[in-house]
């Protein structure tokens, strides 16, 4: 029994991390149709930001809470820069944004490799993450709970932001009908930038969480981008709840597969799972019906 529960806990945490990584993608891809392959590198930037914060605030108990907003802003600014310099010229060529951002990702990776030691940097875990919490007779590592909590907070904040603030409403209006939004006085340019800033910022937050679980190095972003994208695809575009369920499902599946087989075989199996799933539901878990092809 224990043997079956442990991967579940572990997988939930893994799913939460995936969710964090996918959240920003879901925003930029789902709402704007931009496929940002540099999203993984923004995640990496968040992780390095956490490391740099620790160089200033050495007490790790304090530095991680500080690092979260810092990573959000730093990664967000990188995203903003990307939008302003490149993406804004490419809204009509969605598939090409994918390739351009592959190039951006390559450059960011290489830059990180040269700025930081190639084997990566250590991000100190705060002491308060070390323990375990006993829930229902099982020991939950606090670190995993923290990831889950962080993901929940981000999801709640994002959906509240989209739902209740005027910026959020304008984002949704722009998504539904860009031309109409523009003629009703919404500056879609501002909205695009803000969406991109937020989406990239979320990658930064995910990076901090990732730095507490795995290594912080120039390659870390590349590991996350594909699974995160699969999660967005499986969840259904622009569907927050779909993304949440898909992330959790993929996380748990990965964890069980890894438990039964090996880590790398688990990846292969998870991939096959997503393909099979997309066979059954090409639109993902939840769909917004639109009228394709006028």
């Amino acid at each position: 029994m224990d043997a079956l529960i442990a991967p579940l806990l572990n997988g939930s945490a893994q799913g939460a991390l995936l969710l964090l990584a996918a959240l920003g993608l879901s925003l930029t891809f789902g709402q704007m149709g931009v496929i940002n392959m540099a999203h993984g590198e923004f995640l990496m930037i968040g992780a390095f930001a956490a490391y740099l914060v620790q160089q200033v605030i050495t007490a790790s108990n304090l530095s991680i809470p500080v690092a979260l907003p810092v990573a959000f802003v730093v990664a967000g600014l990188f995203g903003l820069l990307l939008e302003v310099t490149i993406i804004q010229w490419m809204y009509r060529r969605p598939l090409d944004t994918l390739l351009v951002t592959v190039g951006v990702g390559l450059i960011l990776q290489q830059a990180a490799l040269q700025i930081f030691p190639s084997q990566g940097v250590p991000v100190e875990k705060p002491g308060w993450l070390d323990g375990q919490l006993n829930i229902l007779g099982y020991e939950w590592p606090l670190r995993q709970l923290f990831t889950i909590l962080l993901a929940s907070v981000c999801v709640a904040a994002l959906s509240a932001w989209l739902k209740y603030t005027s910026f959020g409403r304008r984002i949704r209006a722009t998504v539904q009908n860009r031309d109409l939004a523009e003629t009703s006085g919404i500056s879609t340019r501002t909205i695009d930038r803000l969406t991109f800033f937020t989406g990239s910022g979320l990658a930064g937050v995910a990076g901090v969480a990732a730095s507490l679980i795995g290594g912080t190095n120039s390659q870390m972003g590349a590991q996350y981008i594909i699974p995160a994208f699969l999660v967005v695809a499986a969840g259904g575009i622009g569907q927050l709840k779909g993304t949440i369920i898909a992330a959790w499902a993929v996380g748990v599946a990965l964890s069980y597969f890894a438990y039964w087989t090996t880590g790398s075989l688990a990846q292969v199996l998870a991939f096959i799972l997503v393909i099979v799933f997309l066979q059954l539901r090409p639109q993902g878990l939840f769909t917004v019906r639109t009228r394709s092809l006028a």
Binding site: F29, L98, I226, F229, S264, Q267, V268, I272
Partner: peptide
Amino acid sequence: LFKRRVKGAYFAILTQALAVALATLISS
């Protein structure tokens, strides 16, 4: 994929995922 009309970015990422998966499998 094509019968289910998976295309565009989805197709691109799925094929890339397949490459990652295969490389991982071979490595291991």
